[in-house]
Design a protein around this nucleic acid. Structure first.
Lengths: 403, 403
DNA sequence: TTTCTTTGTTTAGCAACTGAAGAATCTCCG
DNA sequence: CGGAGATTCTTCAGTTGCTAAACAAAGAAA
């Protein structure tokens, strides 16, 4: 009855592949309903995907009164991708299959002070080890995604060193794409991945499409203002989320409290990395230390306020908490955010905001980096938009009016 | 040299028309460069637009060594649109031409307490008067856009009463579309229209495409949190922008100051409408009243912080201040916002955020309402996306595995 | 069996675009 | 003045990617 609307994806092939992935298992008729394409088109496209080995027929559904539907599934082990996350002095590597599932994973302390060439050489070695560790054919590895807070610089070198196509991105955006690809959120969902590592950032997906912003800087939620007269931030403003509630702020507050610092076993100021101390505080809170818990809950209140502001601005449907710090302390933050969004999200009358903890928060940015590779290699040639300058440039400067 | 990328607009015709509008004056070759289409396609599409009377050849450019380019322009007076803005007890009507320029405008005090049927009948009368006042042929009026804070309800009735197709939208979104259509910002710009009427909202355009959000509630910046321990807001949260800095808050603060209230000639609490008193405060500030100015600047600091948060989250290029309240007090707010974004916008190293006051802030939502009509009627049939539910619904619930 | 329902494939046809050839119009230069 | 070259614009055959509709295949109901 209801006329299916046309899907406005880049290409039909990619849209269909995406639907198969998102659905997990689906029939051709299911694809017709979900895509708005006709049976004929789906038939042809699916045959192509099967020929390429990306999709396989995996059985039959029960009959609904006629011929049984042939079920299709992503051929998860047809291709692989490598994802690398450079965090604060830690490098996480994952090898994922087409479905975004982790096939192999290693994590090494990062070398903050080494020169770039050495880092690249070392990363290439460790990527080789990662791929070899599960005996995956290198021809089936589509590429390598490299992400960090504010995307990294040495992509071309790494491309040469590994022989794999390299894509770069920001870690929060990667985490969002990873969530999207792994299918936890709907294919056309509008959501943000709130990613807390050493800083706080958000990856944004609007109606199923990643939003990076014209300067690639979208999702800069770490400097959301939560107190116009608050403490100054290196960014030039006052009362930014990171300064009030970021992991570094929480750790600093805990270190300032002598007895808490001793009880939780914190390092001295400057000695231990922030991540280690943040983990120690979280551990203390879980073991019943009220002071530690209070600090985390205070941070959570700020994060919740920023999350609500973001959800209100973008009319979000889902908010996923991810990244190393939420992997450690997510269970403390989650209820606070849920409560805040249930109580005061403006559009809650229209639809709720579902707040979740990523099932693989610690390696989510790395998994997302791999997902970006999957997306960029399987969705052929993303169509870029023109730069506004070119418009003017195409026109000679002088006109001669007439009528 | 540089291969032009394909424009991913809904239809080519609309994309070309939009380029003509955005450029003001452009040749076919200019369109080829700007759109990435071939000369042949442009030739055909432009002929169609000329046949429909939407575009006209208006002269020649100087030669660049060969045949001179024939310049094309939007035929501004080929079609018209009506825009209606229902604000707090005030209705603004505009009739615009294809370029979004106002051809006729009337503004009437709104009847807050009348029943809907009477309001519709009255609006239909006033729209008729608007169109007749400039003697425009009704066949050339494409439709009517009706906007208010949180879109209005009686579209169908108004459609019957006026005989014009009616589109509804939220006032801030309309204002953003109006700015976009009038060409002040680039065709593919990422920007927000900060719209202050009785409340505060933002209309969001990302890369040239209007973003409304899955529930149509995007841009809810009025409830951005600027103080987690601030005064409570009807929305359920604390420290929301509107409560701290909205026109109603400014007026309340001014009324609480007896001598200021007397000096500025404010109405008693509840007696005068907020808009009138806000205007009175702004007038007092302009005439040198330090207390009034301090109140407005305090409000501006909050608005600036919220604007910065939004700009950081979305990586905005432009921020336009618009709506009735900014029409009155924009000159006080503008420098505060500029300073804040110059100082602390995260991506300022990549690109600046340009902050401007809309040249027609008072009627911007109404003009935008008309622009929505232009867009929806000239860009044939916007392609909706599928609802996520339909995907699951297309699949029978029980599977039978096989291999 | 026969008949009906549902799924999936094939085919012709259409709409929109590209690519390449050609016509038109201008400048420049001998 | 009259080519030669440059540039703009048009025309048209050919490709692509889709739809609509007929058809074939597989099962349920009778």
């Amino acid at each position: 009855m209801s006329r299916p609307a046309r899907v406005t994806h880049a290409s039909t092939r990619a849209a269909v592949l995406d639907l198969v992935r998102a659905a997990g298992m689906i029939s051709r008729v299911g694809l017709v309903n979900a895509s708005g394409l006709t049976g004929g088109t789906i038939s042809t496209v699916v045959r192509g995907l099967i020929d390429e080995g990306l999709v396989a027929e995996t059985g039959h559904a029960e009959s609904t009164g006629g011929k049984r539907r042939v079920m299709l599934q992503l051929n998860h082990f047809a291709r692989y991708a490598v994802g690398v996350h450079l965090d604060d002095a830690r490098i996480t590597y994952v090898l994922t299959n087409l479905g975004g599932a982790v096939v192999a994973r290693i994590s090494r302390p990062g070398s903050a002070s080494e020169d770039p060439a050495a880092v690249v050489a070392r990363m290439a070695r460790e990527v080789d080890a990662l791929i070899d560790s599960v005996g995956v054919d290198r021809d089936r590895v589509l590429g390598l995604g490299l992400v960090s807070a504010g995307s990294p610089g040495f992509g071309e070198d790494l491309e040469r060193a590994t022989g794999l196509p390299v894509v770069l991105d920001d870690d929060a955006t990667a985490a969002a794409i990873g969530e999207h690809w792994s299918g936890g959120v709907g294919a056309t969902a509008t959501f943000a991945a709130l990613c807390m590592g050493s800083g706080i950032g958000a990856g944004i997906v609007l109606g199923g499409t990643t939003y990076r912003g014209p300067g690639g800087q979208a999702g800069g939620i770490g400097h959301a203002c939560l107190d116009v007269d608050g403490p100054p931030c290196p960014c030039g403003a006052r009362g930014c989320l990171e300064v009030l509630a970021g992991p570094a702020a929480v750790v600093a507050q805990a270190r300032a409290n002598r007895s808490l610092a001793r009880a939780a076993g914190l390092g001295r100021k400057g000695s231990a990395p922030v991540a280690a101390d943040f983990a120690a505080i979280s551990r203390a809170a879980r073991q019943g230390d009220g002071r530690a818990l209070a600090l985390l809950e205070r941070s959570a209140r700020y994060v919740a306020a920023a999350a609500r502001t973001l959800a209100n601005a973008l009319d979000l449907e889902v908010l996923v908490l991810t990244g190393p710090s939420f992997a450690i302390a997510g269970s403390t933050y989650l209820p606070v955010l849920r409560e805040e969004l249930d109580r005061a999200f403006i559009a809650r009358g229209v639809h709720p905001v579902s707040v979740r903890l990523s099932p693989s928060a610690a390696s989510a940015p790395a998994i997302g980096a791999a997902a970006i590779v999957l997306q960029s290699e399987l969705v052929p040639r993303s169509q870029g938009l023109r730069l506004p300058d070119d418009l003017a440039a195409g026109e000679p400067p002088v006109f001669q009016h007439a009528r």
